[in-house]
Design a protein around this nucleic acid. Structure first.
Lengths: 196, 196, 196, 196
DNA sequence: AATGAATGAGGCTTCATTCAT
DNA sequence: TATGAATGAAGCCTCATTCAT
């Protein structure tokens, strides 16, 4: 019998990759990169340890795979939904909407976000991952900058950095303090300050 | 030779603890908690591995010790220097001074700061460490709040959270992006916005 | 389309075997038996890993295949070229010519030769391979013996062993010492001693 | 209680090292370097796997340790016994005696010798081990050269290489062919040729 | 005949922790 | 109090081999 067609194999491989990535993300996010073993991920994904290495060269490579798969998604989730509303809302309304989305995503994907922040602080010996982060931050800055420019704000570039910093800082505090942090009040204050 | 009194022993023990903590901090900060081995720290501290366990029950316990020792210090470094100037400067000048200090410390102690942020994001299985962080953030909020109140700012509590978030966010971005981040420009913009 | 006849298939199979063997030899010789993986060989030979197992039962079986294929060839390379000259040269000239050939082949096929020697020293758990080596050495002894007899040398059998040992020993030293070994000088001395 | 004195520890360490080396040598010699696992050696030596790494940085480092420990011994075994007789025997008698010793050692330490030869042929990616071999061969050449010079032989340097090659070649053949090789006859012929 | 995804055993190595001294 | 030899579990990774397709 003929072997599986190449196309079939491609599909299988792609699916497996995603399957592995999804479980890896879950474990990494829940317990941290270092505390998670390849074994765990393999078991969670229902495959053998060895097979992992058909898809990723090393644990670090897997981490890169996870980040590259998931981070653009997270960023896009916010900015796509903004883009969709772009024509029906004024720039100011768009900002407000975007911020709401930010807080939603932050809560929904807290684990991923925490993992990212944690990693971002310890990538000095993982250059490839470092690059991934730099790019992602840069992208975010630029997206926010665009939004601000549309509202006619001067110094949009710097302002974008300040705002992004504030948002990330709020996320940071929220992740650490959890219930002790009155996220709603902060959010409200943030929006008011921004719009006024 | 007379045996050392119990009190002497206590003092010696305390000193040794600090000595270990200092070296542990250095290694943790430089290479990360997981990448640092007990052996390394013991060697750096000039004692044997075995002796470590007279002072700390486990590696994690050592980490707690480090954080409890070092984090209040780091916060104090900033607020003490503010306190010293409290009488000679106006509240606004004090704010400006405090911010300058913040940025200095951030750069000087980048490694410690990164370590803290990184840990703060993955403490879910380490309740004691978690508590340490919550307290430290809380303390910071309150200190900033005091400063703001002195300038007559309304809503000082919320405002303190926003400002702290912004500062921490800037630190986060700076740590990730390094040379690609124009810290000076951001700092300037931050101060201007705050004071205007 | 008519199905390929059984004979055709045999031929194809034989060719493929050789193709695999050739690539296996190259890899084994270059990196050593243990450092070479089946994957590598399969890729080099342009076939799938699975297909390898239609031709060889195991990696060790492949090694046997390689040696059985290649060692008689290596020996023949020398003695055939001697045989061709047999009628035009005196026995002494023939010896000299053979020795030149030996050194040429030794340099050209250093990797194969090293592999063989290395394996020859650790075949105790591989009886089939061991046999292959014994036969090959034996054949070599006899060939040299013939050459010597033709020159009228007494005790040709023992003398053949001594000369072969010397040649193999020189090869051994040359392989180990590389640039630090003055092969040309040794060769010259060897020839002179032999002829004088 | 006081810890073991430093001297005690040194002694313990030295003993363990030798203990490990001895068992490693045995396993390496019997099954070859690659076929021998650290586990095996540890078990044979009656210690835990982990402890191996207190004494050797890696498997390769262990191999180096083995070779450096054992090879000078093997060489010395021959040349020391020669040195002892140096004053009571004529140079020629000394040569003959040395050759006898060589053949004895070759038979007694066949496994070590085989291991060495096998490794010597595949050290291209182990530079440190390669160096060890180069040095050892060099040393042997020079020792033989001295012996020859004492007999007034001209061209002692080249002659030493030829003789060593012959001896090593004989060893090679003997190791491969075993019972099929008439070592005694070859030895006799070798000596006769040398002395005549 | 042919593929390569999948397995699983085993290899090397690290390291927190213990314990005899 | 102090040492560091020793342990053992666990981690990452490789690879010969099998098997569904």
């Amino acid at each position: 019998m003929a072997p599986r067609s190449k196309k079939d194999n491609e599909i299988i491989k792609q699916k497996r990759r995603e399957q592995i990535i999804r479980h890896a993300l879950e474990s990494f996010a829940k317990h941290g990169y270092h505390r998670t073993s390849i074994s765990e991920i393999a078991k969670a994904a229902g495959i053998s340890k060895g097979l992992m290495y058909n898809y990723f060269d090393s644990k670090e490579d897997l981490l890169i795979g996870v980040l590259e798969f998931v981070m653009p998604q997270a960023v896009d989730t916010i900015f796509n939904s903004i883009a969709k509303k772009a024509e029906t809302l004024t720039p100011r309304e768009l900002m407000a909407f975007g911020i709401e989305r930010f807080f939603e995503v932050m809560k929904d994907q807290a684990d991923l976000w925490k993992l990212s922040m944690s990693l971002a602080m310890q990538v000095s010996d993982m250059p490839k991952i470092h690059q991934t982060f730099v790019q992602m931050f840069d992208m975010t800055f630029r997206q926010i900058e665009q939004l601000l420019k549309a509202t006619g704000m001067p110094d949009a570039s710097l302002k974008a950095r300040l705002i992004t910093a504030q948002l990330d800082g709020i996320a940071l505090h929220y992740f650490v303090m959890g219930e002790n942090y009155d996220l709603e009040a902060v959010k409200k204050a943030f929006i008011q300050e921004l719009i006024s």
